[in-house]
């Protein structure tokens, strides 16, 4: 947590003092995108107008306020960064979005989604083991571990134990009905 927040704080600093960065512009763009998706959802909902009864401002009142603030705020952020960039003459890239950094997090998100999809057909336990086997190896490799003979047995064993342990705790302990 601390690191991100420091970076966030550093980001503000750089907007205020240093040269503006592409990520600051992108942050505004993300909010504009969110506002666009939200307002599309509100516009195309045929039921919402039915909701206004009497003095109640209706179910779309607060959502519209939120959407408007996010949209205009995001736009303001984008314009602000552009003005700064024009004044400073540069728009710095942060070096945050490079394949060398992003590929493993992206792979984890994809494999988590596959894990989620596999839970119903395969059952929670099997899906967890299949997920755990490669990832225990990835974490082992990432933290500088060597793949000596010993680990060829130890890693799968650990994966099964962790997945199995957590599964048993929830399933037998608290009767959580896993698929």
């Amino acid at each position: 947590m601390s690191r991100e927040i420091n970076e966030g704080a550093a980001g503000t600093e750089s907007v205020l003092a240093g040269p503006p960065r592409v990520v600051d512009f992108a942050a505004g763009a993300v909010f504009v995108l969110i506002a666009l998706i939200a307002s599309w959802s509100l516009w195309t909902d045929p039921y919402l107008e039915l909701g206004k009864v009497g003095d109640d401002p209706g179910p779309s009142f607060i959502p519209w306020i939120g959407t408007t603030v996010i949209g205009l705020g995001g736009l303001a952020q984008m314009i602000w960064v552009l003005i700064k960039a024009k004044k400073a003459g540069v728009l710095k890239t942060s070096g945050e979005f490079v394949v060398a950094k992003l590929w493993l997090p992206a792979l984890l998100v994809v494999s988590l989604i596959i894990y989620q999809l596999a839970m119903k057909p395969l059952g929670f336990f099997t899906a967890s083991i299949i997920f755990a086997l490669p990832w225990v190896a990835v974490f082992h490799w990432r933290s500088g571990g060597a793949f000596t003979k010993r680990y060829l047995i130890q890693l799968p064993l650990e994966a099964v134990l962790i997945a199995g342990g957590i599964y048993s705790l929830f399933y037998y302990g608290i009767n959580v009905p896993f698929p």
């Binding site: 927040i5 603030v69 996010i70």
Partner: peptide, 9 residues
Amino acid sequence: PGSTFLAIL
């Protein structure tokens, strides 16, 4: 923490 403006958004 961080940018107050982005925090509000």
